[in-house]
Amino acid sequence: MFRFGPCATAAVLIVVASARAIDAQAGQRPPTFNVATGQSLYAKVGCETCHGSGGRGTAAGPPIAGSARQLPAFIASVRKPTGTMPPQSAQVVSDQGLADIHAFLRAASVPLAVGRVQKDPANESAPAGRVDNGAALYKKVGCYQCHANEAQGGLSGPRIGPDPIPFARFVQYIRNPTGEMPPYTEKVLTNQELADVYAFLQARQRPPAVNAVPQLAP
């Protein structure tokens, strides 16, 4: 069994500090932005659901961490998205809130973009998991009911494999989901068991190229 503890907290603080440094150099954000608030809002507003932990993308949404997009353009893309993303009005998240999220996303991108400093806890690799036990658990605790047998998603839940969100966020969301998903406590599913499920999700087969499937021709 593993746990998140002080190490994870420290990593967040370092990321915050990095973001402040970058933003100070760039001089493009209001001085009052707050990465921690941005991180909180990122989860609360629901960005994480599609764009994954730290904005690194999932099956449902592209990566947005480290985007070169400037704040005004970022705000505009959230207010009036062009794709399937739901727009977020100022009543849902203010411009200040979006500035905080923008800062958080920039901060979250640092470890990947620069390849140094501390790791984002959200990007920590998952502990070793057993795919076979994960498969059994995935069925036993009912993940398949919403996310379908191969984690491809269904009517009631999004696709969660084969590219699941980073493990730390995976655990965080399962323990305290912000959407419709029912919560799973450690009593029901231990962290090691979650690691097994995570291993199962990672092991899901990639699909064929859609244009190579005649039945899926428009």
């Binding site: 794709g83 399937t84 047998n149 191969e150 699909p207 859609v210």
Partner: peptide, 22 residues
């Protein structure tokens, strides 16, 4: 974009048994 996303989504678990609803 939404239509294309649906086609891609349907391609996952294409060969799975039991058969995917997609």
């Amino acid at each position: 974009v939404a239509a294309e996303a649906s086609r891609v989504a349907a391609s996952y678990a294409w060969d799975a048994s039991p058969v995917s609803t997609a």
